[in-house]
Design a protein around this nucleic acid. Structure first.
Lengths: 238, 238
DNA sequence: TGCTCTATGTTAGATTGCGTGCATAGATAT
DNA sequence: ATATCTATGCACGCAATCTAACATAGAGCA
């Protein structure tokens, strides 16, 4: 019970031994390279991804070329859980936000395994719901909260998901994540830096004071964390 | 094939005969009364709902007492599909937005049936994903689109979901749906009325020109419709 | 009929964030 | 060292929306 985790990915580590055996032979390790598009909306998802390090960003592309981030997948979770349970047409686009490493697995293999195991299906549903919880909170947050709150929230989430204090992120990409303009982000990022919550320079961002960021963030950070704790019991959102 | 539909609810009507038989004995008809809270976030969902008429609104409650609508469930779909597949703790609150009638079914019964039938599970996943698609579009929409576009989109969706041109809806409730203030809604609702797209009076709203509303609406309406058509093949979002 | 409540209309000022453009400075290449 | 590129800082005007308050008019009730 207190042995080292079988996998650095939370989804895999929490699986029952039987379920893990069903998919273990098919796992491949892949690099997650920042900016790589894993899948676009309406394409068929071929592989699910289980990050060990790094973050996958789920985004909705809008008509004017904007792309709004709706959720993030990190080392605690899996991208593509619902695809394995049913329809493998991607509902959104997935892009690597922070470089890292992941296990990858053919959707068909995972689907076959899920058809054999109710507990595996249950795990996939729970992880899918954790993403669902993120998305609904994003919807509420985007409707009413300020750019400053949303940025703080987003940085906290990224920090948790990546499990690393240093992130490679420009203000431009942060702006796209929260659906704001770059100059608006520049302003509030400056404020956060002066408050010593973060430090950044030319695309390198360091989270110095997560508690400080929490104060600036809206309640959405805590709300998502609570859902995650119940559904996924993550290591990084402890 | 061209017989009358077995049920006025799209989810039930599209089920294979075997799957329908699994749950038919447990269906109960219930009234959906406007403003009724079906479940609050973090409560255990007892029953799933399959509207024949009327609309159920899924909302996220935020810290300052706001409640933002993230999706709607109408006569084509089911509220609680994911609860039956896995975790039955509600991730959001569900409130009756437009009065009507629904079939209701104990979550436990549906879960038991789903455990016996892979095709039933697949249908539940597809309907759950249709809601997921709504929520992610709401997230993007709330981030960047104007109150006017969002209101037009929301009215079109409600119109489709309810399958009725006349809705009982105040400007206050519309405002809460899209996460805006009542006076902002008053302004744009006025514009829409002058354009002869809608007519309203003291809580009674009539959709006169859906095509006109489509022009005012952002692309999010069409995007959700496309996902629905693929996943659910609804009758009302033809 | 008159009273009251609720839904809607309207206004004014404040604020947030956008659109645009440009300046600056660190990083990289030559 | 110089040039160039990219990330960031910043400023100005503008549009959308919020906050707050008040006016009005149907609807229902006494």
């Amino acid at each position: 019970m207190d042995s080292a985790p079988r996998s650095p990915n939370g989804f895999l580590a929490a699986l029952a031994a039987d379920d893990f055996e069903l998919i273990r032979p098919h796992l491949r390790t892949v690099d997650l390279v920042q900016e790589t598009v894993l899948v676009e909306v309406d394409e068929t998802l071929k592989r699910v991804y289980l990050p060990h390090r790094g973050v996958i960003s789920l985004i909705v592309r809008l008509a004017k070329g904007e792309h709004i981030q709706i959720a993030m997948i990190g080392r605690d979770s899996i991208y593509g859980s619902f695809s394995a349970l049913g329809d493998s047409t991607a509902l959104n686009s997935a892009v690597v936000l922070v470089s890292g490493v992941a296990s990858a697995l053919d959707v068909d293999r995972l689907r076959a395994a899920a058809e054999q195991s109710a507990t595996l299906r249950a795990a996939l549903v729970r992880h899918g719901l954790a993403v669902y919880a993120q998305i609904q909170q994003t919807a509420g947050c985007n409707a009413t909260h300020t750019v400053e709150s949303r940025l703080a929230r987003c940085l906290l989430h990224t920090h948790d998901m990546a499990g690393d204090d240093e992130l490679v992120l420009t203000q431009e990409s942060m702006a796209q994540m929260i659906g704001a303009r770059r100059n608006s982000v520049s302003l509030v990022a400056n404020t956060l830096q002066q408050a010593k919550y973060i430090h950044y320079s030319r695309g390198h961002l360091e989270i110095i004071d997560p508690d400080g960021l929490s104060k600036t963030s809206c309640e959405c950070y805590a709300a998502v964390k609570a859902h995650y704790n119940r559904l996924v019991r993550p290591r990084c959102l402890s």
